[in-house]
Amino acid sequence: MPRTPFPEILATLALTLCGTSAAQAAVQTHTVTNYLTHCGGCHGIEGISGRTFIPVLRDQVGIFTCSAEGRAYLARVPGISMSLIRDDQELADVLNFVLFQLGGKSTPAGTTRYSASEVHELRAHPISTTDLLSLRAEVLSRAQASCPH
Rank of each mutant, 00 (worst) to 15 (best):
M1S: 15
R3D: 15
P5I: 11
P7H: 08
P7I: 11
E8S: 13
E8V: 12
L10C: 12
A11E: 14
A14P: 06
L15A: 14
L15N: 14
L15C: 14
G19Q: 12
A22F: 14
A23N: 13
Q24E: 14
A26H: 08
A26C: 11
V32D: 06
N34D: 13
N34C: 09
N34S: 11
L36F: 09
H38F: 11
C39W: 02
G40N: 04
G40F: 01
G41A: 06
C42N: 07
E46W: 14
G47Q: 08
G47N: 07
I48N: 13
I48T: 15
I48V: 15
G50Q: 13
G50C: 11
T52K: 05
F53T: 15
V56A: 08
L57M: 01
R58P: 11
R58Q: 15
D59I: 07
V61T: 01
G62V: 09
I63H: 08
F64D: 05
S67G: 03
G70M: 06
A72D: 06
Y73K: 04
L74N: 04
L74R: 04
R76E: 01
G79S: 02
I80T: 06
I80P: 00
S81N: 02
M82L: 09
I85P: 00
I85Q: 01
I85R: 05
R86E: 12
Q89I: 06
Q89H: 06
L91F: 03
L91V: 05
D93H: 00
D93T: 01
F97C: 01
F97Y: 04
V98E: 03
V98F: 06
Q101M: 09
Q101H: 09
Q101I: 10
G103K: 03
K105N: 14
S106T: 03
S106D: 01
S106Q: 00
T107D: 04
P108H: 06
E118W: 04
V119S: 03
V119P: 01
V119W: 01
H120D: 11
H125S: 07
P126S: 04
P126R: 04
I127Y: 01
I127K: 01
L132M: 02
L133E: 13
A137R: 11
V139D: 02
V139P: 04
L140N: 00
S141K: 10
R142N: 06
Q144A: 07
S146G: 08
